[in-house]
Design a protein around this nucleic acid. Structure first.
Ligand SMILES: [Mn+2]
Ligand SMILES: [Mn+2]
Ligand SMILES: [Mn+2]
Ligand SMILES: [Mn+2]
Lengths: 226, 226
DNA sequence: ATAAAAATTTAGACTAGCCTAAATTTTTAG
DNA sequence: CTAAAAATTTAGGCTAGTCTAAATTTTTAT
C-alpha cells in the first residue's frame, strides 16, 4: 500500500515522462512536487526499493510496469472526481483541480467503480484529458497544439495542457470552450500569435503562450464534454 | 489548519463527551483511536497548545468552543458523504463508514456547501444521525433506546448507535430498517430480550445487546431517510 | 581536454505521530 | 487511612517526509 506522497510522486513521474520523452530528472520532480532535490532523492530510493521505479544514481528515473499501473489508477481517480465536481456539483473547470488532488487518494475499488457508473463511464475529464480505463490503459489521442496548426485550417478544441485557474478563466473570457470549432485566420510571424474565429461567432486574438496549451483535432469529432 | 489526525481526535473527543457526560479520559481516547495512552497524551498536549481543548494533567479533557466547532464540521462532512454514498452511489448503509472516514477530511467550504445542496440538504445520515447545520449546531433528537421501551408500546426506529458492518447486516437480516414501526409484544425479564412486531408484518426476536443500540421515537414522525 | 557550472546525492537535522518501558498521580479497597 | 491497582504522564526511540549545507558526479564550454 502506498502513501499519499508516494502516489503523488508516481503520478508526477508518469506525467513528466510523457511530456519530455525518456527518463525523468530529479530537479524536474523537485519543481513539480514543490520540494527540494534532496527530498526527491530520498523518495526515489524508497520507490526503487518498492520496485515501483527503475532508478540508477544520477541517471534519472522511469516507472516500472507496476509503478505505471498505480500511477494510472491515481490519474483515473483524479479525472473521475473532476467530472463529478463539474457535472454533478456544478463547479467550474477552473475550480476542481485542487479538490480532485485530495479525492484521488481515496482508495476503494468499489468506490471508483460505482462513481464511474454513476457518471456514465465518461471518456474525458473537464479539461479534455482521457480517463484511463479500469484495466489501466491510457487512451492515446492524436491531438496537435493550436500553435502548430496551419493558416486557414479549421479545427476543434479538444483539450488543454495547462490547468491553472488563471489560464482556464482566460479561456472562458475568450469564449474558448471544449468542443468549439476554431478557424485560423491569421498567423503573426514575429510573435507567433494567431487570430482565430470561434465557431461562426467572434474573432479572438490568441498569444503563442496560450496556443501552445490548446490541443485541437482536425476531424469533426463529437464533443468530449462541456 | 489541522491534520487528519487532529481532526480525528477532535471528532472522537466530541462523541465520547456526549456518550458519557463530562470529561473524556485518556484511555477512552486510546481505545477509540486504536493507539496507546502515551500517544494520546502527546496529542492532547498539542491540541491544548492550539487551544482546541481544555486539558489539565490527569484530569481528562473537554473541547473548547473552537474545538467543538471544528469537530462538528468534521462530523457534518462525514455524514453528508455517507448520504452521498448511499443515495447517489447505491452503497449499503453497512459499507459507507470507512470511506466517509477518509472523505470527511477534505476541507473545502465550497465543496461541502455544494454537496449539501446537491443532496437536498438532508437532515439525517443513513444511520439516522442528525447532520450538524452549516452554522455548527447539532440538532438534539429526544430518542429513547428500544431497550427502555415499555411492553405494548408502539414506536418508530429512528437511528442506530452501532455502525459496524456486522450489526447493520444483522438488522437488514431482521427486516429492521430506519423508519419502520415496532410494537413491543413481549419483554423477557431474565435476559431483557424483546419480541417485537415490525410494521404489520413479521415478529422478530431482539436481544438486549441489539435493543440497546436501536433509537426509537414514540411520535409518528416522518421517516428520516430510507 | 579540462575547468567551471549544473545536477544530484549524502550527511545531519527537524517535526508529526506513533511505540515501549518506567515514573508518577489518582482511585479503590481493605 | 494506607497499600495496592489503575490511569496517566514522561523518557527515550522509531519512521516518513521534509530541509540545508556539503560532497560528488555529470554536463557544458572554452
Ligand atoms: Mn494528490
Ligand atoms: Mn483534469
Ligand atoms: Mn477520519
Ligand atoms: Mn453515520
Amino acid at each position: 500500500m502506498q502513501s499519499f506522497t508516494e502516489e503523488n510522486y508516481l503520478k508526477m513521474i508518469y506525467s513528466l515522462a510523457n511530456r519530455r520523452q525518456g527518463e525523468v530528472s530529479t530537479n524536474a520532480l523537485a519543481e513539480m512536487t514543490s520540494t527540494k532535490a534532496a527530498s526527491v532523492t530520498d523518495m526515489l530510493r524508497k520507490l526503487a526499493d518498492k520496485q515501483l521505479i527503475h532508478y540508477k544514481k544520477y541517471q534519472g528515473v522511469r516507472l516500472t510496469e507496476e509503478g505505471e499501473r498505480l500511477a494510472l489508477q491515481v490519474i483515473r481517480r483524479h479525472r473521475l472526481w473532476e467530472v463529478f465536481l463539474v457535472q454533478k456539483l456544478g463547479f467550474g473547470w477552473d475550480e476542481v483541480h485542487d479538490i480532485a488532488e485530495e479525492l484521488e487518494h481515496i482508495r476503494s475499488e468499489d468506490l471508483v467503480a460505482r462513481l464511474d457508473t454513476y457518471l456514465g463511464c465518461p471518456q474525458f475529464d473537464p479539461h479534455g484529458d482521457p480517463i484511463p480505463t479500469p484495466a489501466g490503459q491510457m487512451p492515446e489521442m492524436g491531438y496537435r497544439k493550436l500553435s502548430e496548426v496551419a493558416m486557414g485550417e479549421d479545427v476543434c478544441l479538444m483539450a488543454v495542457l495547462e490547468h491553472s485557474t488563471e489560464f482556464l478563466k482566460h479561456l472562458d473570457h475568450s469564449n474558448l470552450t471544449l468542443g468549439c470549432s476554431i478557424t485560423v485566420n491569421e498567423i503573426n510571424t514575429f510573435d507567433k500569435s494567431v487570430l482565430v474565429q470561434i465557431g461562426t461567432g467572434r474573432t479572438v486574438f490568441i498569444s503563442h503562450e496560450v496556443a501552445k496549451n490548446l490541443l485541437v483535432d482536425s476531424r469533426q469529432s463529437v464533443v468530449a464534454s462541456h
